[in-house]
Simulated scan of single mutants.
Amino acid sequence: MAMLAAGTSFKHQHLSAILARPPGDDFFFEVHAENYMGAGGPPHRMLTALRERHALSLHGVCMSIGGPGALDELHLARFRDLVLRYQPAFVSEHLAWSSHGGTFFNDLLPLPYTRATLDRVCAHIDQVQAAIRRPLLLENPATYLAFASSTMGEAEFIRAVAQRSGCGLLLDVNNAFVSAANHGYSAVDYLNAFPLERVGEIHLAGHSEQRDDEGAPLLIDSHDRAVAPPVWDLYRGVIERIGPTPTLIEWDSELPDWPTLRAQAQAARRIMREERHHAVA
């Protein structure tokens, strides 16, 4: 894939507008794996038409890699089959858990960063990577609480996971910003400690602001608006350090029209192009 590749979440409302434009290998689309785990039908017809013209990023949201129990073998098999069927450019999942004891939660829940959690997460990643026969990209989470039992910081934990499992990383810059604001630490310091050398893909998204019970700001990774200026600033800093890296705009609700969404991806591409020109100069 081209180094200046940029893309967006794929929404079926935009398919006709997408197909009306010339195909290109520098624009890619992300889909949530769980939306395509049926055998056929309209979802697969749309995704097949898209895949004929563009690269895909397959993004899992329900693997529960950080969960205390074993991975769901049927879910993993369906995930593997999607990878084989569409041969995506990127395959990713979250550093989170979302199921326990047969109960599934509609959320990506945080983990205690301990040695026991590290062992479990790495074992699960090994299992996924063996099934899909390629490295998995692991995404840093957006969090709203932290465990007192944690014995290491998030960036340190993610570095240890990547080194031990051999996985790559999906750096979500908005998640880094949201978590830093919610927990009262510096997003810049977090990114300075993050293993940027393992990043294979970047996510950008919009967030919303609420208030907690004490009236303090609480940022929500809502994916329902344009990327915020401070997140663009952080992104530019990352690109300055690691160079152009495939970047995807996540926008999952309150959807804009296709030109508006595409413009966000084009903004990421401009930043990458500017940094490449600076590096050459």
Rank of each mutant, 00 (worst) to 15 (best):
M1W: 07
G7S: 04
T8M: 01
S9L: 11
H12Q: 14
H14K: 08
L15M: 03
S16Y: 07
L19A: 04
L19S: 07
F27N: 01
F29P: 00
E30L: 01
H32D: 04
H32T: 06
H32E: 03
Y36C: 08
G40V: 02
G41L: 07
P42K: 07
R45N: 12
L47H: 08
T48Y: 14
R51D: 05
R51L: 03
R53G: 12
S57Q: 06
H59P: 05
V61K: 04
S64Y: 05
G66M: 05
G67K: 07
P68H: 14
G69Y: 08
G69E: 15
A70N: 06
L71C: 07
L76R: 09
R78M: 11
F79T: 12
D81N: 15
V83Y: 13
L84Y: 15
S92V: 03
T103R: 15
N106Q: 15
N106T: 09
D107K: 11
P110C: 09
L111H: 05
P112A: 09
T114F: 05
D126S: 02
D126L: 06
V128D: 05
A130S: 11
A130N: 12
Y144S: 11
A148W: 15
A148P: 13
S149C: 15
S150R: 11
G153S: 10
F157G: 07
V161G: 10
A162R: 10
R164W: 11
S165R: 12
G166P: 03
C167T: 10
C167V: 10
C167A: 12
C167E: 10
G168Y: 09
G168P: 07
L169P: 03
L170Q: 02
N174T: 02
F177V: 03
S179H: 03
H183K: 11
S186I: 07
V188F: 12
F194E: 05
P195N: 15
P195D: 08
R198M: 13
G200F: 03
I202L: 00
H203S: 01
A205N: 01
A205T: 01
A205L: 02
G206T: 02
G206Y: 05
S208W: 13
P217A: 03
L218C: 12
I220V: 10
I220C: 09
D221Y: 04
D221A: 10
S222G: 05
D224A: 08
R225C: 09
A226Q: 12
V227F: 01
V227K: 01
W232V: 00
R236G: 08
G237T: 00
E240Y: 09
R241N: 13
I242T: 04
I242N: 01
G243I: 01
G243M: 01
P244I: 00
T245P: 00
L248I: 02
I249R: 00
E254K: 14
T260H: 03
L261M: 14
L261I: 10
A265D: 01
Q266W: 11
A267N: 07
A268M: 00
R270N: 03
R276N: 13
A279S: 15
